[in-house]
């Protein structure tokens, strides 16, 4: 796809609640993404997401400010329950969302047939990591934008941009899952709730923090210890792919999948824009308004500075990353793999 140089990429921001949505709009989001209060989206957490009335109000508010609203319907309906996903798509269309973010082939087909006039984005949950996979979804369901899995290097993204007939959105900041999204059943193995079908990863109801007599804090998901922290150490939220385990080749427990770090690709902004990325996504629908305000504002500044030919300021973003540690994940080099 031929791309004009230095086009202005869209900043796509999380809106877990109506208040967070207003905050993101104020802080300079070009678009916000959100979901309904049920299993139809991948952040199905208590206290998050929108009722139909709230969604209507949020869309009116965002549109008045010139901000687009992207509706995540990005989980996989189990057979027999497809109706709930159909309703989410229909309701989104009725309320006037600007695009659906979709992952399931059945849901994408439904949205394309019934609401052909509404843009369709391919969720990261669809795990489309090659030109062929992306072109499949573009040709079959009229996908206009793909959200890329967080596993590609900048070089790979650049090569991909030349081979696919749709826009590219990449994650740039926030929580950094290690497994390919849409292809992980770890939570279900331990809790009986499925990330793909129920929209939950490490559900809070199954999480426990146990303080031992030595003052160490063990974090658990369901029956299993995921990690342990010394007294005074900040105990991370127990997510299976960020836990510490024993393996035969290791004398001590180690982070078998990844250290508990947070994704921050701000230093790569200029390269990513040059590679042809059309939209940058900030993770964090579960985050506070203060966090959303700070991150969105910082990225607004960073993107604008980059487009003006400067280098982005990064210090304030580093302070917001989990445990103050950050990573460029897979984006910088293949050695990450």
């Amino acid at each position: 796809m031929n791309r004009p140089a230095k086009k202005r990429p869209e900043l796509v921001c999380p809106a877990g609640t109506p208040a967070a949505l207003r905050t993101a709009v104020e802080a300079g989001a070009d678009a916000v993404y959100c979901g309904f209060q049920n299993a139809t989206n991948a952040r199905n957490f208590p206290g998050l997401n929108f009722t139909p009335d709230e969604m209507a109000g949020a869309i009116a508010h965002a549109h008045a400010a010139g901000t687009r609203v992207l509706l995540a319907v990005n989980t996989f309906p189990p057979a027999g329950k497809f109706g709930l996903w159909q309703e989410a798509v229909d309701l989104g269309a009725e309320l006037g969302v600007d695009a659906f973010i979709l992952a399931d082939i059945g849901v994408a087909d439904y949205a394309a047939r019934v609401h052909p006039g509404i843009r369709r984005h391919l969720s990261v949950q669809a795990a489309a990591s090659s030109p062929e996979a992306i072109r499949y979804f573009v040709e079959e369901f009229g996908i206009r934008r793909v959200v890329l899995p967080r596993i590609l290097t900048v070089g790979e993204i650049r090569a991909l941009a030349d081979e696919i007939p749709c826009e590219i959105e990449t994650f740039i900041f926030g929580n950094h899952g290690l497994m390919i999204e849409g292809r992980c059943s770890l939570t279900n193995y331990v809790t009986g709730l499925s990330t793909n079908m129920d929209g939950v990863c490490s559900p809070a109801a199954e999480v426990r923090y146990d303080t031992g007599v030595d003052g160490c804090v063990s974090t658990r998901l369901g029956p299993h210890i995921i990690d342990r922290f010394a007294p005074g150490e900040q105990a991370g939220y127990p997510t299976i792919c960020k836990g510490r385990y024993f393996a035969p080749a290791r004398g001590e427990a180690y982070y078998a999948f990844e250290e508990p770090v947070s994704l921050n690709l701000a230093p790569l902004l200029p390269e990513l824009i040059a590679a042809g990325v059309d939209a940058f996504k900030i993770e964090g629908r579960q985050r506070s308004r203060a966090y959303v305000r700070a991150v969105v504002a910082a990225f607004r500044k960073a993107i604008d500075a980059t487009l003006a030919g400067g280098r982005p300021e990064l210090a304030e973003l580093v302070a917001l990353t989990e445990g103050q540690r950050q990573t460029e994940g897979a984006a910088r080099t293949k050695r990450w793999r």
Binding site: S129, C184, S185, C241, A256
Partner: peptide, 13 residues
Amino acid sequence: SLALSARCYHARA
């Protein structure tokens, strides 16, 4: 099969 990644966890170990 519970999860797939781009990273090889065997190599990482």
